[in-house]
Amino acid sequence: MPKITYIEQNGKEHTVEVPVGWTVMEGAVKNRVPGIDADCGGACACATCHVYVDPAWQAKLKPRAEMEAQMLDFALELKPNSRLSCQIKVTQELDGLVVHTPKSQH
């Protein structure tokens, strides 16, 4: 199973296994990684699962779809590597992915 590493603002790392086909958001929620609220449960409707993808991994991800880009446009502290983690599907190729959680989702 691919391993995903979530790094909190304070530097605390959480490395968890996430099934292929699940999302990076679900990997966090099911493993109680703090900092990802995901109020809407992954429908790209709330923008509370914002993460920063580690620069080393950015090129390996599919680009943002239009709805995700629109929702992200209003996120706090938007950066070029900002993503909504509910829109990143876990694949075998993403084994080792590193994402950083933001200070706040609201």
Binding site: E26, K30, N31
Partner: peptide
């Protein structure tokens, strides 16, 4: 979560365990 029930879960492309809001732990 109830929202996926009438969408992805009904479709069959969303496993039941993905619906649960929290892990058992």
């Amino acid at each position: 979560q109830r929202p996926p029930l009438s969408k992805a879960y009904l479709s069959g492309d969303y496993a039941r365990e993905r619906l649960f809001l929290k892990p058992d732990s």
